[in-house]
Amino acid sequence: MINRVTSSSINANLVLNMQKNYADYAKLTEQISSGKKIESILDNPTEAINIINANRELNKIEEWESNITYLTNELNQSSDTLDFIIDKSQRAKDLATISANKTYNKDNLNSVLTEVDLLIESIVDMANTKHNGNYIYSGVNTKTAPYEIQYDNNGEITGIEYKGSSKDNVWERKLEISEGIFQTVNVTGIEVFGESNVNGDSSGIMGDLIDLRNNLKNTISKLEEQENLPENATQAEKNQIVSEINSCYDSINRLLDNFDDSINNITGINSRIGAVTNKLEMTSKALENTSLNIEGEKSDIENIDLTKTISEWYMSQYAYQASMQVFQASNSMSLLNYI
């Protein structure tokens, strides 16, 4: 027996198929115009979660890259500062060498002293360098200048005091550069330059500078004493002064090794900073690669394959046209035309 087919069932079917074809066509049209397969979580829930995860990863990487930029900038500034200070320290050492070879007279030494004072001021100035408004070398006491020059009542420099974080307490400033890994950005001033404070703690280049200054001062005063020695001074008194002056020169001479040690310390730290900068550059490249990979995966999920989609679009267009044609043709067919 032939199944009964009625006008209304044929009609309903035709309309249903037309709607289906139109929906396909409309969806593909939208995809092509936006370039995306998945625009809403409802388009494909499972893949949408993957896109969300990819976005999360990309956001994180962006953060890390911004941190790396910050780190690199500060480290570069720090490295430039250290280069400058090494230069100045070298000059201070040269001055010490010249002063130690006994050829300078009192006036010469006085001008050396003036230059040493200037060197101290400019080195302290550089050690008080800021990055983005924060002192680089004061540990986490970022709003406190790490070094303060101490003067006595006559305006003479007596010490260089360190005011930054102590190495024994919290001193590190750290930024995240990849999942859970924090890179320390700073070195403390006390570690790089040392200090010379009222308690008599003396270390590093700062200690050496003050020592040099004190010894120069001593030498000058001894030379003055020798000049002002009364006519009737005994040979023993004269010899005494000469030996005192010699011992002053000796202690300046001994400072030379200290200068070398201190400069080496700064150079060492500077090359460590260089190593960190290199490491950051590599991390940044790795992050960039990861980011590109994720972008690629995300694009595979999210974006349409234009060639494929356009050919599908043509197909759906044909299907839609065909279903409309069938509707028109079958609707015009009726027994009414023949009776």
Binding site: N141, T142, T144, K163, N169, V170, R173, K174
Partner: peptide
């Protein structure tokens, strides 16, 4: 800021100038 060795009885366990200490944020 965060000081892991903070001791209420020992004022030296904290450096009050440590405005750049971000260990709590970390």
């Amino acid at each position: 800021a965060y000081f892991p060795d903070y001791d209420p009885l020992n004022p030296d366990s904290v450096d009050l100038n440590a405005v750049g200490n971000a260990d709590n944020i970390i």
